[in-house]
């Protein structure tokens, strides 16, 4: 799967979790850009991404996710 496709799929998940259909993601988007992206919603997001891509993250992976770009790289490495 191309990284662009992953970004589009991740964007759909973000829109659903944050209940915001106008949300547009870039690889630079981070928690600072989305007020609702807090430590509570983060785990729900992680769980939804895991289900959607049928992958499993490790706790250590979470520390490496600084922005959406990092998340996409990690997903790509697990597909």
């Amino acid at each position: 799967m191309e990284k662009n496709e992953i970004l589009k799929k991740v964007e759909t998940i973000f829109r659903s979790v944050f209940d915001n259909n106008s949300l547009v993601l870039t690889t630079e988007t981070s928690a600072l850009d989305i007020p609702e992206w807090n430590s509570l919603n983060h785990m729900i997001l992680i769980s939804e991404v895991e289900s959607a891509f049928s992958i499993r993250f490790k706790l250590r992976d979470l520390n490496m996710m600084r922005n959406v770009g990092d998340m996409i790289d990690l997903i790509a490495s697990k597909l």
Binding site: S39, L40, L59, L62
Partner: peptide, 15 residues
């Protein structure tokens, strides 16, 4: 974080 990661499949209740 480690706890909520372990409980993530329970969604909001895990949190």
């Amino acid at each position: 974080t480690p706890l909520s990661f372990s409980f993530r499949k329970y969604k909001v209740w895990g949190i």
